[in-house]
Design a protein around this nucleic acid. Sequence first.
DNA 1: TTCATGCTTCGATGGTAGCCGAAGCATCGT
DNA 2: ACGATGCTTCGGCTACCATCGAAGCATGAA
Lengths: 224, 224
Amino acid sequence: MVAALVGDPARANMLTALMNGRALTASELAQEAGITPQTASSHLAKLEAGGLVEPEKQGRHRYYRLTDDDVAGVLEGLAGLAARTGHMRVRTGPKDPALRRARICYDHLAGDLGVQMLDSLRERNLVKQKKQEIELTAEGERFLARHLQISPDMLSHPRRPVCKACLDWSERRHHLAGTLGAAMMRRFAELKWAARDATPGSRVVNFTRTGEKQFAALFGNGKD
Amino acid sequence: MVAALVGDPARANMLTALMNGRALTASELAQEAGITPQTASSHLAKLEAGGLVEPEKQGRHRYYRLTDDDVAGVLEGLAGLAARTGHMRVRTGPKDPALRRARICYDHLAGDLGVQMLDSLRERNLVKQKKQEIELTAEGERFLARHLQISPDMLSHPRRPVCKACLDWSERRHHLAGTLGAAMMRRFAELKWAARDATPGSRVVNFTRTGEKQFAALFGNGKD
DNA sequence: TTCATGCTTCGATGGTAGCCGAAGCATCGT
DNA sequence: ACGATGCTTCGGCTACCATCGAAGCATGAA
């Protein structure tokens, strides 16, 4: 059972460490979880058997990453359920509001801005959403090409969908995942609109001043 | 952590039983999970503390339901991850393999044979199923009258539906509940095709040799 | 080759939590 | 009032599994 895998604290720590999308070595994950390498090895074997993580051998290291963003989505969902038990007490610390506003979910944008972006796309018929299924419209393709230099052929992937709705734990609404979500986040970084926080392991995404403006111009909802 | 709650097999069974949206009493959930009421009570308290289920007091019963469809969504996501690796639950809960094959679920037949029976009914257009709704067809009524001496007027009940799909935890598919499911199980017993196990409290249903044959003749799928 | 690093396997230990029997409340029915 | 039913609490038992030390393989470096 998958939930039992996520249930163990040590494994949960490893998975959250992997939520930022980067691959980490077994020893790094061990340190992250506060356990010895032997124990981590056992855990990672189980996570791999459960299909939650994938190993990649490189020299004498083994890099582990989340299998795909479906896994990331479910983990976000679980975090959301957990957050609500604490009765929003998660308000502690100055880093938290930043995490709510914009963060990395595996490899795409999440948080307030992520939700706002998908809202905007949907509202202007650039995508059509039915439950978890999201489809890019013809207008959407034109929009992406014009404003973000993203072409459809950049998005095709053998096993991963172009668009997918991912449940956002802080907003309790959907944001955009899939190869498009990843490509857009990548473009934001390339355009220097936003960058991942420098502190290692952080999932916070910091927008530059101009980035914030440009983002608002494309996906603004008038409230900002 | 929430995942640990879902991780336990007994609790997971309860939650999947609640996935149809209806509220179930604590004892029904105990039966579904194959555990005693004491144990179930402990589990339900934890699930409630974790915000996954909500109790509703009604007379001397306590009905439990999933808190909201966010919870259901996350559970479905977990099931999706589990399904992908063929990593379905075969874990403990009920320890008895006989319990997997045929058992009582409240008052009707569950387990492998229960699922097989509903499959057969559906396949031969004796019932029509749409999601959790099941409807008896005219052919179905004739079939029941001819082979099991069950007439429609035996099945009417003020508050209970004639047919209902009940999620089978061991098979993770539906079997037949409702007054019809109960009536059929009763008839099987009367015909001495099957009897509940003698050991008190057991939910195992033992089929006789002739019963097994007759059952296969009516609801066989060729595999037996 | 020889040593060092990264990771895995093996074996033993301990803590935790699921489980049930027995008993205790509450509610319902008569 | 009395017993029956549904659910909970308590206490003890047991099984599972995470954990770590030590040893075993790899790979890379010298």
